[in-house]
Simulated assay, not measured.
Amino acid sequence: MKGADLYDDPDFLAGYQRLRREGLGLNDELEIPAMAALLPPAAGLRVLDLGCGEGGLAQRLAVGGAVGVLAVDASAAMLATAVRHPRIRYRQSDLATLELTPESFDLAVSSLVLHYLEDFDGLVGRISRWLAPGGRFVFSVEHPVVTAPLEAADGRLDDYADEGPRQRKWFVDEVTKYHRTVSSMVGTLRRHRFQLAAVEEPQPSEEQVRRKPHLSIHRRRPPLLLISAGLQS
């Protein structure tokens, strides 16, 4: 099942919403704090949120003073329950075909979405056109050491050099993710005039593991990769 359809599948959506409701994912403990640390101050910025889901990141940026947030997601089900804010506009669109006005944003963000996208190079190229000179792109993905194995094997690094689709069971069978190496992602950003500002691999502290033992696997290898890059003039 591809990313554009995934969150509209009722079985997947129920599992995902239960995960978030019960705090069993990585979002609250790792991804949200790590993303916040990389983001520039939102005040006065025009923001594009790619794969916004239920709008949590878009809301935080709007509350932080963004003059406007265009929040895009392919899932009608996710957008139906998205948080509302006067400075957030929601749009239903597949990121693979999204087209926007050049130089209309100062900041593009994406939270745990781009590992579902087949054409990373194509999207990064479009983002470089949508951002104004000096704009920033900040995103998180599932870490390549996790996506790498052709056969799911948590805690074992394998097949790292072989980029491409991977089939995983996550609430439903045959969820399609796309594995890319770190160097491949960095190279793509550089080709499209982005300069690396930060690379982060957040992992839980020992205290977090004591509070939430299900996080212990993530002490063995990093579950997430976050990158911040600025668009060169």
Rank of each mutant, 00 (worst) to 15 (best):
A74L: 03
A108D: 06
A74N: 12
S184R: 14
F137H: 01
I88V: 15
H179Y: 07
A82C: 09
I127F: 12
T81N: 11
D159K: 01
R84G: 10
R180G: 05
L100E: 14
V124F: 12
V109Y: 07
R91A: 15
A80I: 00
G125S: 15
G122R: 00
V146T: 05
Q92M: 06
S75W: 05
Q92A: 12
R89W: 02
A77N: 13
E174N: 14
S111C: 12
R126F: 01
D162I: 11
I127Y: 04
H85M: 05
A161M: 02
A153I: 00
G125T: 11
M185P: 03
L123E: 10
G125L: 12
L114F: 05
A108M: 10
L157E: 09
A96N: 08
S128T: 05
Y178E: 02
L117E: 01
D106G: 13
F139M: 10
V141R: 08
P149G: 09
L107K: 06
D121V: 12
A152R: 14
G164E: 03
R126Y: 04
D121G: 09
T147Q: 10
T101D: 13
P86I: 02
T81R: 15
A148S: 15
G187L: 10
L150T: 05
H143C: 05
R156M: 08
G164L: 04
G122H: 09
S183M: 11
Q167C: 09
T101P: 08
V141S: 03
G125P: 00
G135V: 07
S75T: 07
L150K: 13
D94Y: 14
S183I: 10
P149M: 04
E174R: 14
M185Q: 13
A148W: 12
